[in-house]
Simulated scan of single mutants.
Amino acid sequence: MRRPFGPVLAAALWALSSAPAPAQDAPAVRLGFAKCAHCLPMALLPGLARGVAVDATGFNSGNDVLTALVSKSIDVAQVTYLHYVTALDKGFDVVAVAGEVNGGSECLAGKALGLAADDWAGFKAAVEKARAAGTPLKVAASRGNAQDIHMRGAFLKQGINPNKDVQFVNIPNPSDHLAAMQRGEIDMVCSVEPFASQIRMAGAASRFVLPYDQAAGNLTNLIVTRSDVIKARRPAVQAVVDADVALVGKLTADRAVWIDVINQKTGLPKEVAAEALKNAEPDYRMYRAKTLAIAAMMRDLKYISRDVSAEVEKNMDYSFLEAATRRTRDGLGG
């Protein structure tokens, strides 16, 4: 846990927060993140934070992280653009303050399908054949996460209705995807790294497609908080965003540290971690226009019940990134 580097810095932080005690005596910022290749680097963020202590906790999924944020069990959360839109649809108080890592989605086909990579014609033929036989293909994902939405959007763009043409199988914990594929319980899975690479490298399935040909593109992660946290502890939120910008720089410059944290947090071999990072892109920017497109796609897929465009724009706060990078909103995806 880091402490301020001297009494002058402590006094400055005290003045900024208007707290009755020095910064080192303030409660830690409680940070939550999911257990996936592009999320696990958040475990490194406490070591990069300056002027604030960060208590980072890993959760099984982004859904669990979002639940912890809205229930006020944590102060800042690494979730996805999809969780952000879903939260706004439900009227939750969430404010996006930075990006982190994008990518990490892969659709993998079981051997029985005999599909080559990107063979949409072959997949559509298999879908039609299975439907005609009354045994629709079983396609799995962790419902509500980025990979689920990426897959559904890509299917829809190819004329495959994910709600009618295939049988969706919800496997909440991505670490269980491999076993389901090995047991033959599913025909295809859209999984998250490093578990997608684990499935491929175990020979249980092969790459069908990286499902980025849809409104979300490869956008995945956002750092979000609540308005009450910003109001009460703005300097602390700024310190987290500063650390996130530093983290993105670190991941871009040194993949070894990223590989190490995946290995340590999941127990998967470093070879799997290294393969997973071929499908990951560190990026602290937030993409407003694409987020609006994601919200429209999610409404088309009936994942949300209403138009949340106004809330999407209102609740993307670029001021922290502007301060951390000294760049304008336009240069930060705004």
Rank of each mutant, 00 (worst) to 15 (best):
Q78K: 02
A196Q: 12
K90A: 15
L108F: 08
P46L: 01
L268V: 03
N63T: 12
A205L: 02
Q198D: 14
L268G: 03
A256E: 14
A96T: 01
F92R: 12
Y81G: 10
H83C: 10
P4S: 09
L115P: 13
S73D: 14
V169G: 04
L178A: 13
V85A: 13
K278R: 14
W120C: 13
V308P: 14
A68F: 04
N315Y: 03
V65L: 07
Y212A: 12
N170F: 07
M151G: 01
N145S: 06
D228P: 11
M188N: 07
K265G: 02
L113Y: 10
A37K: 06
K278P: 11
Y81P: 10
E271V: 14
D25A: 15
A53T: 13
G103L: 01
A323F: 00
A246Q: 15
G267M: 05
S71I: 00
Q214K: 00
A179V: 08
T67E: 11
L31K: 02
A28C: 06
N102S: 13
A21V: 11
R288D: 03
A87N: 11
V65F: 11
V237G: 06
P7D: 07
S309D: 12
G331C: 11
R200G: 14
M297V: 00
V76H: 11
I230G: 10
N102P: 00
D187N: 15
S73P: 03
A19F: 03
R183M: 11
G6C: 10
A180V: 00
G153P: 00
R131C: 08
G153Y: 00
R143E: 11
G6F: 05
A246P: 12
I223V: 14
E322N: 08
Y84F: 15
S197L: 01
V127M: 01
V209C: 12
C190A: 08
S175D: 12
V237A: 11
Q158M: 12
V272S: 01
A77F: 00
A146E: 06
G103W: 02
T57K: 07
Y284F: 15
T328D: 13
A117V: 11
D300G: 08
V169D: 03
R200T: 11
K72G: 09
A37W: 09
G134W: 03
I199N: 13
I259W: 00
D242G: 04
K314I: 00
A204P: 15
R200I: 10
L156K: 04
R299F: 07
V240W: 03
A236I: 02
V95P: 02
Q182D: 06
A246F: 05
C36V: 14
D118G: 08
C190N: 09
A23L: 09
S142F: 01
G122I: 00
M151Q: 09
I171L: 08
L251F: 05
A77D: 04
A87E: 06
E100A: 15
W258L: 06
H83T: 00
S142K: 02
N145F: 04
C39M: 07
A34Y: 00
R285H: 13
D148S: 12
D119I: 03
E275V: 08
G333V: 01
D317Y: 04
T252R: 12
F320C: 05
F195C: 05
G249S: 07
I304K: 08
L108C: 12
L69A: 04
G122S: 08
Y84W: 10
L222R: 10
G58H: 01
A116L: 10
K290V: 06
